[in-house]
Design a protein around this nucleic acid. Structure first.
Lengths: 241, 241
DNA sequence: CGGGGAGTTGAGAAAGTTCAACTGTGGTGG
DNA sequence: CCACCACAGTTGAACTTTCTCAACTCCCCG
């Protein structure tokens, strides 16, 4: 996973970026070697443990980042404390918003995470010069919009069982690369987080996990380790066409 | 509303565009007089009655449009018929998606609507030449993403009363221009649509309307005409900080 | 005047929440 | 090395909210 890729422009590519996944799948792929060098001079790679807050709801966003590894949850909170996870970001997603001064939601690492941060203004300068970069950011925004709207259907119209199955399906297809027959993965979220993502209580989530296990749709070990013997069966439980 | 605006470049502006609202607030504002002329040659202005389907879920999207007047609802449907409205678009929003072959949801007019359509490929050509146009589209996408995520909180964590109040607040602030003290407006959605937007049943929506009326938060005439004497009070019922 | 569609209201059923007790696990300190 | 604690997750029972189904009202239109 962290092997150095062979690259035509390897010699021009900043050392820090050479083995970077985000440079291909993420936004950095839109940059020239020159721009990449400029960006890398101002970027910092960080390892964050689970539960680290990157930015609070309504706070000023002075940095942007690429997710290299791990999962980041975006949450919105009501004044009385009720909370909803409004998005999950996986590597190599981009994090942050050029031209926005304050964040519409808080961002917190769900798992141990590695990110590559850089100043927002740095990115804005690059965007103004590279239409292709804006195009990539736009494409990711559209992807996030589609995912958000998919999830609106889940939140608004599915019952508890379908919600939990939908969540497991989302993780199985988006998260771990070991997506083969008999998909297995570590859940990146606690039961409390899953509840906040699905608009349910912890107890209801737990009961539905148990029910899916008893129905043989999933196997659970250690609370977090899940195996899905038949993805299509899970899909049926999730109410996905 | 349809008065001809004074404009520095009035003489260069295509006749059809001169009195157009979208040219200022919408995407057309990013175009030069020349580009506007090119676009206007291939654009058609249409008047559509309420309930007209513009594009079906999964269908090919060959045209884009600006909404000139009215409200368009974006819906996603489950195989068994359960339905969720995943977005409401008001004038002068842009409708459609460059570079996407199929639509992730269906789009249907909620009210009588006027739109200005043009071929998707036309727009793609303009986008590739005008970075400013892509920037505007990106900004609208970001706005839609924020709105979608706001609504996720509403769908996942609010109770029926808060949901209905949130909906009324949304309409009061986004829709009719007569937003003064004692806000009054015509609801652009039927009870069934409101239910599909809030993830509730028609009956629950109706009961909450009645309750809000009895509590003096709103006044209702003719089922569709709503008056909000005190917007802040409505906000409290909606659970908005 | 009658019919149809949209909206309302009521009563019982179902789903999910709440509160409380319990289980299992991993870490800490005696 | 074991006892104990803290924490995450599970399970149960009562309760609340929303849904379902059915009947009814209202208004528009012919």
């Amino acid at each position: 996973m962290d092997m150095q890729r062979s690259d035509i422009h390897n010699s021009d590519t900043p050392v820090a970026c050479r083995s970077c996944e985000a440079r291909h799948g993420g936004v950095c792929g839109a940059l020239s070697a020159e721009q990449l060098l400029e960006l890398s001079k101002h970027s910092t790679r960080k390892r964050l443990e689970a539960g680290t807050e990157l930015v609070g709801q309504g706070e000023e966003t002075c940095t942007c980042a690429n997710i290299m590894r791990g999962v980041v949850k975006l949450t919105r909170m009501m004044p009385d404390g009720r909370q909803q996870i409004v998005g999950l970001q996986f590597a190599p997603d981009f994090l942050g918003r050029p031209h926005a001064t304050e964040s519409p939601h808080s961002a917190e690492t769900a798992t141990e995470t590695e990110i590559c941060t850089f100043p927002r203004q740095m990115l804005e300068r690059l965007v103004s010069r590279s239409p292709d970069l804006e195009h990539r950011l736009h494409q990711q925004t559209l992807k996030e919009l589609d995912e958000a709207r998919d999830w609106m259907l889940t939140l608004g119209r599915k019952n508890a069982q379908e919600k939990v199955a939908s969540f497991l399906h989302l993780i199985a297809t988006h998260y771990d690369p070991e997506t083969v027959e008999g998909t297995a993965f570590e859940l990146p979220l606690s039961r409390a987080d899953v509840a906040d993502f699905l608009g349910l209580t912890i107890e209801t989530v737990s009961r539905q996990f148990t029910k899916l296990r008893k129905d043989g749709v999933i196997h659970i070990e250690n609370n977090r380790h899940v195996t899905v013997p038949d993805l299509e069966r899970l899909q049926q439980f999730a109410g996905i066409d």
